[in-house]
Write a protein that binds this DNA or RNA. Structure first.
Lengths: 233, 233
DNA sequence: CGTCAAATTGAAAGTCGTCAATTATCGTGG
DNA sequence: CCACGATAATTGACGACTTTCAATTTGACG
């Protein structure tokens, strides 16, 4: 199966909008290539829960967009511990790298469907004369800002602040927000730089404080989102 | 006073080398513009110790290269604490951003000299038809990798591991390496996500263990660099 | 030599991690 | 549909590491 990812070449949009539109466009968003647009063939792949999408230090062959399910990108330490750099769900791009080897590994948090877009580095893309570079740059800078925000969280926040930030990050805009967690407590812990026990205890404490409700382990209702947000300035 | 930053337009080099050469080129590296190269005017600025170069959320007018001295880029929390994202010394670029506001603030760790290059975003640079985009992308990805490495450090390392990583990062290639610290213990603590006391205690312990020597507070001799590196896998 | 800021050191407290036990959840098969 | 086993999650007790608070020492500069 093959799909297309629209890569527009208009110059009048801002770089931000260009990238946002192009990198978020799904297969369904480009039923027919528009005049002047460049399309990139993508291959749809399915991964079972906990299967590896690519390994750290493996050769970069493609970058990826999540169609369904959730993906985690992470690093491993020699002692077996993990640092999860981020979770990626429908519409998110991941695995786009400058060098020829992946700096992180990627794994399926849940069963998921992913589109792989062939990618041989920026120079190869630039040589095709398409307007991908600004979008790729935009993407890199977004990743950078998230990474810096994450470093701030890991360096300076308490366990309660980290868990609160995670819940707010995962929540939708509804009120009260219901968060469906695709990942285990271990995943959350490895994302927040905590242990599974601390995450569990913190969630329990939030529940006792009536800040959240836990109808099931994977469903969190943010009863008092303001209280959660207030924990981080 | 005005200087130039060479921005080469050759296509035959790898993206990596392009960026590395162009972004590291100093005033002295481009005595005369070469045929086919694009030059960017830079303004030399001096900043006194602890003065602000730009504030978080301030408008992006330029990006910067350090000529002399050391710069820190950091974020502030509402409680007054800081997370220093990185230190930048001679030759380093900082302050290059996608959006129109800075995501971090920049301050002079020591008295320092900096070249400011006018920068109005990638689209403005791209419109001038120079070949800056790949170099900027390369730069962004390098920052991203450093930020991810830093997140790993902050999320999963003990105080001793963090201080060891910092010393190795700051060390030159000589043996034994002598590190001249331009920053205070507080700066180091805010970079490593620790307190000033913990940094001090850890350095003292390293000294007792004969891993380092401290001829003065700002001079560290890595007596046993292997031992320091062994702490992190 | 005196003053002030930076750095070090000590003692106590607190947070989070570790280890262990219990409970809950989910998938599988009877 | 229920029972069972395996995995995930929770909870408790304890300990280690880091922070906090406080005092002292060191170093820079007039």
């Amino acid at each position: 199966m093959t799909t297309v990812l629209a890569m527009r070449s208009e110059r009048d949009s801002t770089a931000g909008h260009l990238a946002a539109e192009a990198l978020r466009a799904g297969p369904q968003a480009a039923p027919r290539p528009e005049t002047g647009s460049v399309t990139i063939a993508g291959q749809v792949l399915n991964f079972a829960q906990d299967s590896e999408i690519y390994a750290e230090c493996s050769e970069v062959r493609s970058f990826y967009k999540v169609v369904g399910g959730v993906v985690r990108t992470c690093k491993f330490l020699s002692d077996g511990r993990r640092q999860i750099e981020g979770f990626h769900s429908a519409g998110d791009i991941f695995g786009l790298e400058l060098g020829d080897t992946h700096g992180l590994s990627a794994e399926a948090v849940s069963d998921c469907t992913i589109v792989a877009y062939r990618w041989r580095g920026l120079s190869a893309a630039a040589a095709r004369n398409d307007q991908m570079a600004p979008q790729v740059f935009q993407f890199a800078m977004q990743c950078l800002q998230r990474a810096q925000q994450h470093a701030l969280l890991l360096g300076r926040r308490s366990a309660a602040q980290r868990v609160a930030a995670f819940l707010v990050e995962m929540a939708d805009d509804e009120e009260p927000a219901t968060v469906h967690l695709a990942m285990t407590r271990q995943d959350i812990a490895d994302y927040l730089g905590l242990t599974i026990e601390t995450v569990s205890r913190t969630l329990s404490q939030f529940e006792r404080d009536r800040v959240i409700a836990l109808p099931s382990t994977r469903h969190v209702v943010l009863e008092d989102r303001d209280a959660l947000m207030a924990l981080n300035d």
